[in-house]
């Protein structure tokens, strides 16, 4: 009999530097999986990307075993880097944090496509343009 899936949790963490403190502890402890087991596995898999945020998808099964899958960097991170902006705008409805070109948008969409709920790169572009807008990052031609 195939084991049953009980939860899917995504975490955004600094590569190689996960600890059992929040958010890892509360996010995973409630499902009965061993927190240090996850921390060790995550840090080992991401140690070469230190300095970046590496999101991870954890699937948890009924026997308390779990699988760890690393995901592409957050779109927000890629947008910030492309725009050369240290952070998004805190008031995206009023102030802009930076700008990127359509070509940069397409590049980010292509990189993110495998992890997105988009059918094609155009769909991914639309979602990422939305993210850019809500961070106060303008898209220019």
């Amino acid at each position: 009999m195939a084991k049953k899936l009980v939860a899917v949790v995504k975490l955004q963490l600094p590569a190689g530097k996960a600890t059992p403190a929040p958010p890892v502890g509360p996010a995973l402890g409630q499902y009965g999986i061993n927190i240090m087991g996850f921390v060790k596995e995550y840090n080992e898999k991401t140690s070469s990307q230190a300095g970046s945020i590496v999101p991870v998808e954890i699937t948890i099964y009924s026997d308390r075993s779990f699988q760890v899958k690393l995901l592409t960097p957050p779109a927000a991170d890629l947008l910030r880097k492309a725009a050369g902006a240290p952070k998004g705008s805190g008031t995206p409805n009023r102030t802009t944090a930076g700008q990127i070109t359509r070509a940069q948008l397409r590049q980010i969409a292509q990189q993110k496509l495998p992890d997105m709920n988009a059918l094609d790169v155009e769909g991914a572009e639309k979602i990422i343009a939305g993210t850019a807008r809500s961070m106060g990052i303008k898209i220019v031609d």
Binding site: V8, V9, K10, L11, Q12, L13, P14, A21, P22, P23
Partner: peptide, 9 residues
């Protein structure tokens, strides 16, 4: 957030 961590369910 602490340690820049975010959980998405």
């Amino acid at each position: 957030g602490y340690n820049g961590g975010v959980v998405a369910e």
